[in-house]
Nucleic acid binder design. Structure first.
Length: 509
RNA sequence: GCUGCCAUCGUCUAGUUGGUUAGGACACCGGCCUUUCACGUCGGCAACGCGGGUUCGAGUCCCGCUGGCAGUACCA
């Protein structure tokens, strides 16, 4: 590779970017950075009918959340701008014309309605899917069947027309995919794809070739759904007389159950986000959940996504973006589609949650506290986070136990029934006296006092602890009581014992 | 239908020059730890789609079959 590596991520702004798209962007980015190359963002908005407001911003923000920064793009143009195809509109026609002049393309005047009719007719006759190709083009209205005069007349008359690729007869088209190896297709199976639409906009097929060439793209890394049209692209490079980039077609991300591409509906159905960020549809106002809003960490999300189709070849699973860059290679990308695993995504998040400091977690939890109207100091919340991080997968999980922030108003019924014995009130009252005597209410001191209390009275843990926990937290399970009590403070603990005692006694009678 | 791609535990996968008790992780189940839950830890369950070759030897190479997926638009 003597040339500088340049890759592009080229989404169309037709809606939110789903995680398959994010992974494609990620692999492009990792590949570029691994080779010290450039990663460009190009907006493929040649279909004006499918434009969705906000989609481009969504794409930018999603990449940014993942830590993927384009070296060139609409926001930070390089020397190959503009980076939106709609703004490059005037660039494409000349290449289509060049193809016509060289005999590799032709004008076609068939209307969408006429094409639809032909297709329907073929369907009725149970013929295979009708295609505009080497055989059928002889029966259609185009510059191959019409006289030169009529073609000129139609064009001068302003008749709408498209420009189609003239696929060759019986040629072997081969491409060496970086992931799949040699892919060979006979040109008889390639149809005469539309290159320029009637609205004078190029189709993806023409635009992506022209832009990739003009932007010095060295590697085209994209989803497997593009593999069938790759031979057409190879043909186009050939006909335009350009060097073609290397291709790598990535395996698809599949739905967790059954088969098929992961789609928006699967997320709704199975209860996990399929989008990196929350998305509000501007038309329907429908809201789709996002990983960010669901409490996922960006670095964990990226790590998880990277492993959906790639692995380092050994047992390591936790990788920062920097580590991914240094280890990534297309050779280690699998060929088969990967079913998305929401459990694994959760596990990754748990790993990343636990590796965060209590102070970081406090900051992340704060918005949730505020949303719940809970007042809590920084120091206090960090200590709670320290206790809760071992049993949380997501930030809001740490808020599952509300007793840190407010005294229990109810007491777990099952625990009351099973653990609250006749002598429990008396025992807890005695314990209360010992706790009251502790001057420094530290976890360690509480622990020592508690154990001594057990020893002096000949009690087992199970005789005392459940009642104590119940009174202070209202629950039958949770982290170490010494730690909880210490965080809550002596005054609060004693108060809770008193009020709890009264409430439960009332319940029992 | 046609064209192309793909095929190792339920899931993600290691196994890149043929010789492995086919390894790891998630999930699940059990032991230990713990007042309890979680964490941790130890262990268990569990896979080369089928059939032919080539070879002393095939998860690995070849062919066929089956299955799955993708594409089949004046969408990307």
């Amino acid at each position: 590779m003597s040339q500088k590596v340049r890759v592009r991520f080229a989404p169309s702004p037709t809606g939110p970017l789903h995680i398959g798209g994010v992974r494609t962007a990620l692999y492009n980015y990792l590949f570029a950075k691994h080779h010290g190359g450039d990663f460009l963002l190009r907006i493929e908005d040649t279909d004006q009918t499918r434009f969705v407001p906000g989609a481009e911003e969504y794409i930018q923000q999603s990449l940014s959340w993942c830590g993927i920064t384009p070296d060139e793009g609409p926001q930070n143009p390089g020397n190959c701008g503009p980076y939106r195809q709609s703004e490059r509109k005037d660039l494409y026609y000349q290449y289509a014309e060049q193809l016509i002049n060289d005999g590799y393309a032709y004008y076609a005047f068939d209307t969408p309605e006429e094409l639809e009719n032909v297709r329907e007719m073929a369907k009725k006759m149970k013929a295979p899917n009708w295609q505009y190709n080497q055989i059928t083009r002889t029966g259609m209205k185009n510059s191959l069947t019409l006289t030169k005069e009529e073609v000129e007349a139609r064009i001068n008359n302003g008749d709408p027309y498209v420009i189609r690729l003239k696929a060759p007869r019986n040629e072997e088209i081969r491409l060496n995919d970086l992931i799949r190896g040699w892919v060979v297709v006979n040109s008889n199976n390639i149809d005469d794809k539309v290159l320029m639409k009637a609205d004078k906009m190029p189709t993806y097929h023409l635009a992506n070739i022209v832009d990739d060439h003009l932007m010095d793209i060295t590697h085209v890394i994209r989803g497997e759904e593009w593999l069938p049209s790759a031979p057409t692209h190879v043909l186009l490079y050939q006909y335009l007389g350009w060097n073609q980039p290397d291709f790598a077609h990535l395996p698809l991300i599949l739905k967790p159950d059954g088969n098929g591409k992961l789609s928006k509906r699967d997320g709704d159905r199975l209860g996990f986000p399929v989008f990196p960020l929350e998305w509000k549809d501007p038309k329907t106002h429908e809201v789709s959940s996002g990983y960010r809003e669901s409490g996922y960490f960006a670095d964990g999300f990226v790590n998880m996504l990277a492993f959906l189709g790639w692995n380092p070849g050994d047992d390591r699973e936790i990788f920062s973006l920097e580590e991914l860059i240094s280890e990534f290679s297309l050779e280690r990308v699998g060929k088969a589609g990967a079913k998305f695993d929401a459990d694994k995504a959760k596990w990754y998040n748990q790993q990343y949650l636990r590796s965060r400091s209590n102070e970081e977690l406090e900051e992340l939890l704060r918005p949730y506290l505020e949303a719940e109207g809970i007042q809590s100091s920084k120091g206090f919340t960090s200590r709670v986070c320290g206790l809760m991080k071992e049993r949380a997968s997501f930030i809001p999980d740490m808020l599952n136990d509300r007793f840190y922030f407010e005294a229990p108003t109810s007491y777990d019924e099952k625990t009351v029934r099973k653990k609250w014995k006749e002598d429990t009130p008396e025992i807890v009252k005695n314990l209360r006296g010992k706790l009251e005597g502790i001057s420094d209410f530290s976890e360690e001191n509480i622990d020592v006092t508690f154990k001594k209390f057990l020893e002096d009275n000949g009690y087992g843990f199970g005789k005392v602890m459940p009642g104590f926990r119940l009174l202070v937290t209202g629950k039958g399970m949770g982290p170490s009581m010494s730690a909880i009590a210490s965080i809550l403070g002596k005054e609060e603990v004693l108060k809770r014992i008193d009020t709890g005692l009264a409430v439960i006694e009332q319940l029992a009678s």
